[in-house]
């Protein structure tokens, strides 16, 4: 309680920040997002317990793409971990046995969950200490890594995908969690659908152009949020540019326009612009689009 009071005490103490490069300026190699298609999986728990009683739909492979500014000489590595620690602990995988490396060497990869589970089950000889004793869940046994001490099972597993990319010695790390729900009845979330970026205005050096994210509103779903309320997804658009200045760098809901102040640098011929669209709040759906602006 005292610690909380301390945190709250800071709420009002927001000061002016120093002049750093803005978040929207993608002027170096970085990962702007990782899109997974689909964004989450639903798995019949019977697949794990072996107690399948009817027809089962196998989870589709998850196609993953890392969005980044153009760069040469990048090495890519994709790892998947079934149980990872939280952000306070750097997203580390709980044990190496729960982690596998995917066969990919570029900015895309495919996650086949059943294949990963099979691989891990093959490597993973026992139950981690303290993870419980595979007690029953509705009469069925939990897989070891999902069992809780009270006999129940975790209802959701956040499979973590870790991307390590960059020139040798300068790698950066990005993570994406793919929720796997052990609930055959759940309607899985879908990614929003952004179909393009409309450019309005003449792209002259030093001038301004307007960028509009073309988002299919039909892709915005209704869902029940953490509080139990039914809501419609509130899209968030994060804009990035390899040069110039975006005003603003993020737009929300129906406000899908931003202004790009183009650079005056004569050595630049083109500017790459990206929009990453999230379906907002605690939803994890993502889509992105790219447009290349040729400077006049």
């Amino acid at each position: 309680m005292r610690r909380l009071a301390l945190i709250i005490g800071f709420v009002g103490l927001v000061g002016c920040g120093p002049e750093f490069d803005p978040f929207h300026l993608a002027n170096k190699f970085r990962i702007l997002t990782i899109k997974t298609e689909p964004p989450e999986l639903v798995l019949d728990p019977g697949l794990l317990t072996g107690e399948i009683t009817g027809p089962v739909t196998l989870p589709p492979p998850v196609e993953m793409t890392a969005l980044h500014p153009p760069a040469d000489g990048i090495r890519w590595r994709w790892d998947v971990c079934l149980l990872s620690l939280d952000s306070l602990n750097g997203f580390q995988c709980v044990t190496p046995e729960l982690e596998v490396t995917l066969p990919s060497t570029d900015d895309t990869a495919t996650l086949d969950l059943l294949q990963v589970l099979t691989a891990i089950a093959g490597d993973f000889g026992g139950i981690p200490d303290g993870m419980g004793g595979a007690d029953a869940m509705d009469g069925a046994a939990c897989p070891p890594f999902l069992a809780l001490p009270d006999g129940s099972c975790l209802g959701r597993l956040d499979v973590q995908v870790k991307v390590t990319a960059g020139p040798p010695g300068e790698e950066i790390v990005a993570v994406r969690k793919v929720p796997v729900y052990f609930d055959a009845e759940r309607e899985p979330n879908r990614n929003p659908d952004v179909t393009g970026i409309t450019v309005t205005g003449d792209p002259v050096r030093g001038g301004e152009i307007t960028l509009t994210a073309e988002l299919d509103d039909a892709s915005l779903e209704t869902f029940v949020n953490l509080s139990g309320d039914t809501r419609t997804e509130r899209p968030v658009m994060s804009w990035f540019t390899t040069a110039g200045e975006l005003q603003p760098g993020a737009t929300f809901d129906d406000d899908r326009d931003t202004t790009l102040v183009l650079p005056t640098d004569e050595t630049l011929d083109t500017v790459e612009v990206y929009v990453v669209v999230r379906d907002g709040d605690e939803r994890r759906g993502i889509d992105f689009e790219t447009v290349s602006i040729t400077l006049e």
């Binding site: 990962i31 997002t33 952000s87 750097g90 950066i172 790390v173 993570v175 994060s238």
Partner: peptide, 10 residues
């Protein structure tokens, strides 16, 4: 680490 779920760095 870039957390792609939230679009923030941790």
């Amino acid at each position: 680490v870039f957390d792609a779920n939230t679009g923030t760095y941790v």
